[in-house]
Design a protein around this nucleic acid. Structure first.
Length: 501
RNA sequence: GCUCCAUUAGCAUAGUGGCUAGUGCAUCCGACUUUCUAUCGGAAGACAAGGGUUCGAUUCCCUUAUGGAGUACCA
């Protein structure tokens, strides 16, 4: 059993994949790997109107960036191809004929306008129009006409769709791995369109046919499909096929307010909702997130290990993942938590790789090459990374190592720069000039001793010193900064501040 | 409206028919650093409501409320 697991992620190329989709792909991937199974990518491009060029590549690139790999996909076909539904049209045609022949489906000629009218009309009366047992005989379909008329209309080239004939008076027992048994009264179901007038199948038909033909064992998809489960089960029955097992994942909800997470929430809240940038919207990658962080927080959206562990690499996730531990209720998306994850992963990164990522930023700021020795940059990175969430935070946390402060924080100046400060700084300058060894410890020892000897308070000296060196009241230990920028630069900054402040 | 799903602190969640309901993020306070958005320590904060079942329910059942999804020739 364990070796026959075959799952699939089946996105529709109608735009960039949002993180909910990535999460679905991730859960499929984890489940497959956990059970030594196969993970398939199938492109569901049956809607010609909504097809967006580039979306398919985007999906593959995004998933690849996350480290989600497929054993079979349009790029690497296995024995069940093609892996794009638009290339499988003939298959659906055959299958719909089978359903028509067995009496499980029928032709319908009702126009969209007519159906819209019925829906609006019912709505006005506070009712819902459902195309099914209680009105299908009154509508324009093959159930309400004789064979001759049907053939005539079919041959005349009049557009038609094929609908599923939902059974009457049956209580369906559906099973979902996450939710258990669900009972549905078949009379509440409608006769869904299976085959569109443009010659393409709808999602429902194509999905069932492909999952069967591709020998999918477990369908793991979003909760928005739960209401369709009855139809899908009925379709498997109509074909006489064994249905796979189903698991419906909880939706990802907005950080605040009602409803599911949308692109707009990201714009409002200032966080990405797409893995990679798409047109003018920024993706997680471009915002500076590490793929490990994205995967980690996505995994914990709707699933938890039942332990207090929060940090999981992909291998840990494969090990720990289990469909039984997926939640039933919607998972609220928390942008703060995603930052927390990135902070965690940034701390775990090697200094070398952080330096490598930081160097281009340093160059953008036109830092002179002699300040960019890899040891020097590494020391600085180690010093500031603790308070960084993204590599892009480094510059703000360390610019004073590379450039003299151009401005001084006005509030800090007001608070720290007293009338006697220039005099104290001048005297400090003299002390510093005398010292040749400029290591952090030595300078700290000398300066502190000098402060005591002169009956100054630490705040009187150290606070303005930080201000002068950094430009604001922030940054690592002052004496560490001094040691790195060196004696000459230290003296120059103090000197300049005395004259300009 | 109808169908289905859900409901533990501000948020995400763990957990149990009976010991002070655990954890993380956020919040507040303290310490450190005579800087801090970091780190460390501490605090506050929850079983939606009402009925049952039971010796006993946050845990099982029902009702209500609230939230979510679907209700397309979209997926």
């Amino acid at each position: 059993m364990a070796s026959t697991v075959r799952v699939r992620f089946a996105p529709s190329p109608t735009g960039p994949l949002h993180i909910g989709g990535v999460r679905t792909a991730l859960f499929n991937y984890l489940f497959a790997k956990k059970h030594g199974g196969t993970c398939i990518l199938r492109i569901e491009d049956t809607d010609q109107n909504r097809y967006v060029p580039g979306a398919e590549d985007y999906i593959m690139n995004a998933l690849e960036w996350c480290g989600i790999a497929f054993d079979e996909s349009p790029k690497a076909e296995g024995n069940f191809g093609p892996y794009r539904q638009s290339e499988r049209k003939a298959l659906y045609r055959e299958c719909i004929e089978q359903l028509l022949a067995s009496g499980n489906a029928y032709y319908a000629f009702d126009t969209s306008e007519k159906l819209d009218f019925h829906r609006k009309d019912h709505e006005k009366k506070g009712k819902t129009f459902i195309y099914n047992w209680h009105n299908r005989s009154k509508l324009d379909n093959s159930l309400s006409m004789d064979t001759n008329t049907l053939n005539e209309r079919l041959n005349s080239g009049e557009p038609y769709v094929v609908r599923f004939l939902s059974p009457e008076n049956r209580t369906l027992q559906l099973t979902d791995i996450i939710r258990g048994t669900i009972e549905i009264d078949s009379n509440t179901l409608d006769d869904k369109v299976l085959f569109k007038s443009d010659g393409m199948p709808t999602y429902h038909l194509a999905n069932i046919v492909d999952d069967h033909l591709m020998e999918i064992s477990h369908v793991i998809r979003g909760e928005e499909w739960l209401p369709s489960l009855a139809l899908h089960q009925l379709l498997y029955d109509a074909f006489g096929w064994d249905a796979p097992q189903f698991a419906h994942l909880p939706l990802i909800m907005k950080p605040v307010g009602k409803g599911k997470l949308s692109k707009r929430d990201g714009e409002k809240g200032g966080f990405p909702v797409f893995p990679l940038s798409w047109n003018d919207t920024t993706g997680y990658r471009e915002a500076g997130y590490f793929p490990e962080a994205v995967v980690n927080f996505l995994a914990l959206l709707g699933w938890n290990p039942g332990t207090e562990q929060e940090l999981f690499g992909m291998d840990d996730l494969i090990e720990a993942f289990d469909l039984d531990r997926v939640n039933r209720s919607g998972a609220r998306f928390d942008p703060d938590k995603t930052k927390w994850y990135n902070h965690q992963y940034l701390q775990q990164r090697s200094t070398e790789s952080l330096v490598e990522d930081f160097l281009p930023i340093l160059n953008e700021h036109e830092v002179p090459a002699e300040l960019l020795g890899s040891d020097r940059v590494a020391t600085i990175v180690d010093m500031v990374k603790e308070r960084a969430t993204f590599v892009s935070d480094f510059w703000g946390l360390s610019h004073f190592f590379f450039k003299r402060p151009e401005t001084f924080d006005a509030k800090a100046v007001k608070k720290q720069w007293k009338t006697d400060t220039p005099d104290i700084m001048n005297r400090l300058l003299d002390v510093l000039k005398e010292t040749d060894a400029f290591s952090s410890d030595t300078v700290e020892g000398i300066v502190k001793a000098w402060i005591k000897d002169n009956d100054f308070s630490f705040g009187q000296v150290l606070a303005p010193l930080r201000l002068v060196i950094v430009g604001a009241m922030q940054g690592p230990h002052v004496f560490d900064i001094l040691a790195i920028i060196g004696k000459k630069e230290t003296l120059a900054r103090i000197d300049r501040a005395i004259t300009t402040l």
